[in-house]
Amino acid sequence: MISLIVNKRRVDLDVDPSTPLLWVLRDNLGLNGTKYGCGMAQCGACTVHVDGQAVRSCVAPVSRAAGREITTIEGLSPDLSHPLQRAWIEVDVPQCGYCQSGQIMSAAVLLKEKPKPTDEDIDQALTGNICRCGTYPRIRRAVHRAAELAAEGGRP
């Protein structure tokens, strides 16, 4: 049995401890917002937070997440109220949308650490997240916008 705290809820699972966290989230917990893109920490589509840090869940064995706080895109906010989600909607960032959970989760850690990020900070924090549609110019704009929204609203 492995115990996880996922989006503030404790879950107990009987799974092979070497299973990547990504597939436990998707196949065992039905949290499909976290995506599979490469399986080798190259694309960032699977990014989640483990104890507040951005982690590529496709290469993190579930055993390593035992007892830790995991946040997925579904746990970022219940109602699209997170400044990044508001900014993403305002700037109309997504195209196909597949990579966006990972982009937002990476950006969320950035904003916690640097509430007013520069373009360079954004590039550095999001360089591990590939977007094949090429939404990068709008991602940059939206992260800056989210920083403004967070400053106004006191989050994240």
Binding site: R26, G30, L31, N32, G33, T34, K35, Y36, T72, I73, E74, L76, S77, L80, L84, Q85, W88, I89, D92, V93, P94, G97, Y98, Q100, S101, I104
Partner: peptide, 21 residues
């Protein structure tokens, strides 16, 4: 005009083929 599909692409709820169960 803002895209109608942005909300479901920012909260993980949009269903892609790989998400079907």
């Amino acid at each position: 005009v803002k895209r109608l599909d942005t909300p479901e692409k920012t909260n993980g709820k949009g269903v892609f083929g790989i998400d079907v169960t």
